[in-house]
Amino acid sequence: MPLDPFVHDTLGQRVILEAGGAAKHLAAEVSRLGADRVMLIAAEAESHLADRVTAGLPVALRWTEVAQHVPVELAERAREAAASAAVDLLVAVGGGSTVGLAKAIALTARVPIVAVPTTYAGSEATAVWGLTEGREKTTGTHPSVLPVTVVYDATLTVSLPVGLSVASGFNALAHCVDSMWAPGSDPINRALAVEGIRVFASGLPKVVADPAGLEGRDECLYGAYLSAVSFASAGSGLHHKICHVLGGAYRLPHAETHAIVLPHVLALNAPAVPDRGRRIAEAFGGGEPLAALERLRAAVAAPRALKDVGFDEAAVGEAAARILPGVPPSNPAPVDRRVLETLLRAAWAGDTPGGAA
Rank of each mutant, 00 (worst) to 15 (best):
M180C: 10
G184Q: 11
L156S: 03
T157K: 03
V208A: 07
V162C: 09
G203R: 00
I197T: 02
G203V: 02
A209C: 09
A191R: 05
T149A: 14
K206P: 00
V158R: 02
P161M: 12
A209K: 10
D178F: 06
T141W: 14
S165I: 09
G169K: 00
K206L: 13
D178C: 08
A174V: 07
G169A: 08
A154S: 06
L164N: 08
V207C: 02
D210Q: 14
S159V: 15
T157C: 14
P187L: 12
S202W: 15
A201T: 06
D210S: 13
V177H: 01
I188E: 10
A154V: 07
V177I: 14
S202E: 12
V158Q: 04
L156T: 00
P205G: 06
N171H: 10
L192C: 07
V158E: 07
G169E: 03
A182W: 03
L204M: 12
V194C: 11
Y152I: 08
L160Q: 04
S202A: 14
S165E: 05
T149K: 00
A154R: 01
G196N: 05
G196W: 03
N189G: 11
I197D: 01
W181Q: 05
P143I: 13
S179M: 07
W181N: 04
S179G: 06
V151A: 04
T157G: 05
V150K: 01
A174S: 13
S179P: 01
P143L: 13
S168R: 00
V199N: 02
A201H: 00
G169Y: 03
A172E: 01
G203T: 03
R198Y: 08
Y152H: 13
D186A: 15
S185N: 10
R135V: 14
P205A: 09
V208Q: 06
P161R: 12
D153F: 01
A191S: 15
A191F: 11
I197K: 00
R135Y: 14
G203C: 06
I197Y: 01
V148W: 08
R198M: 11
G184C: 12
V199T: 08
V148Q: 06
G169W: 05
A191Q: 09
K206S: 07
F200Y: 04
G134R: 12
E195Y: 06
A174Y: 02
G184I: 08
M180K: 07
A167T: 01
P205E: 04
P183I: 13
L146W: 08
A209V: 14
V199H: 03
A193H: 03
S179Q: 10
